[in-house]
C-alpha cells in the first residue's frame, strides 16, 4: 500500500523562552511542541494519503523527550508514527538529520511521497526537504502552497517572490510545504483517544546505521536586541518631515 511520510520536529515552545537582561537565552522552562508549521504538513500528509488511497505515517528524529510528541502527531490523523530515538538528535545539524530520516524512509516499502514543512519554527533552516531529495535521489519541490495528485503524477503550486510556479513530478518525490497548504484542525475527543491505540515504530541510533557526528556545532546562543535610535523630532509638521528626511538620508536609507 502506498505510503505518505511526513517528517516533523519536536521544538521548544517559543512562548516559554526567556531572554535574560544580558541577552543570554533561558530555555530551561520551555516545554516542547510539534513545530507549528509541521502541524499543517501533517494534515497535508493525511489528505495526500487519502488521495493516494494509502497510509499516512509520521516520522520524527529526536531525543527521548520527543516521545511526548507521538500521541499528538497520531491524534492529528496519521495512522502510524516512526520515531528515531537518540540523544544525538540534540546536536544534529541538517546533514545528520536528513541522513537519519532518509535511513528510516529507506526501511519502508512503497513510499510515494515525503512531506516536510518548508522550515521548522525554531531554526527555519529549510534544509531537510532538499537534502532528503538528494539522499533518496527523488525530485524535490519546495515552497509548495497547493498540491493535486493524479495517479502517480503530483502537480504543485510553488509560491515564489513574484509569481506562482506550477510544477509536475512523477512520484515518489519529496515536497516542502508552506503553512497555507491546508489548515491544521485541533484534534477532537475521539481522535485523541484513538491516538493511544495506534502503532509506534521506534528505532535506536544503532538501527539507523549512520554517523551521527555533526560537522557544524553550535558554539553559542544569544538573543538579538534591536538597537533603536530613540530620536524624537521636534517642531511643527513641516519641520518634523524635513528633519525626518534629513535623518533618513544621514542613515543612508534614502
Amino acid at each position: 500500500m502506498s505510503k505518505t511520510i511526513v517528517c516533523y520536529k519536536w521544538v521548544k515552545d517559543e512562548a516559554d523562552i526567556k531572554v535574560n537582561p544580558d541577552l543570554s537565552v533561558d530555555l530551561s522552562k520551555a516545554k516542547g511542541k510539534i513545530s507549528d508549521y509541521d502541524k499543517n504538513a501533517i494534515e497535508a500528509a493525511v489528505q495526500a494519503a487519502r488521495l493516494l488511497a494509502g497510509k499516512s505515517i509520521g516520522l520524527t528524529f529526536g531525543t527521548p523527550k520527543t516521545k511526548q510528541s507521538l500521541k499528538d502527531a497520531l491524534s492529528r490523523g496519521l495512522e502510524e508514527v516512526c520515531w528515531i530515538n537518540t540523544e544525538a538528535a540534540a546536536e544534529a545539524d541538517g546533514i545528520v538529520t536528513s541522513k537519519a530520516l532518509a535511513a528510516a524512509i529507506k526501511k519502508m516499502d512503497d513510499v510515494s511521497l515525503v512531506i516536510c514543512a518548508e522550515g521548522a519554527s525554531d531554526t527555519y533552516a529549510r534544509q531537510t526537504a532538499p537534502r532528503l531529495g538528494a539522499l533518496l535521489q527523488w525530485p524535490v519541490i519546495t515552497s509548495v502552497s497547493k498540491i493535486q495528485i493524479n495517479g502517480d503524477i503530483l502537480s504543485a503550486s510553488r509560491k515564489l517572490d513574484d509569481c506562482i510556479e506550477t510544477v509536475k513530478v512523477k512520484l515518489p518525490a519529496v515536497i516542502a510545504v508552506l503553512p497555507e497548504i491546508c489548515n491544521a484542525p485541533i484534534p477532537g475527543l475521539k481522535a485523541v483517544m484513538a491516538a493511544g491505540k495506534k502503532p509506534i515504530a521506534e528505532y535506536q541510533a544503532g538501527d539507523i546505521g549512520i554517523d551521527f557526528t555533526s560537522k557544524s556545532q553550535v558554539s553559542g546562543l544569544k538573543a538579538y536586541a534591536m538597537n533603536r535610535k530613540n530620536i524624537i523630532l521636534e517642531g511643527d509638521t513641516s519641520e518634523k518631515i524635513a528633519s525626518l528626511v534629513a535623518a533618513l538620508k544621514k542613515e543612508g536609507v534614502l
Binding site: 485541533i186 484534534p187 477532537g188 475527543l189 485523541v192 483517544m193 493511544g196
Partner: peptide, 11 residues
C-alpha cells in the same frame, strides 16, 4: 494516567 485512566487534553 499511570494508574490507567485515559486523560485527553485540549478538548
Amino acid at each position: 494516567e499511570e494508574m490507567g485512566a485515559v486523560v485527553v487534553c485540549g478538548v
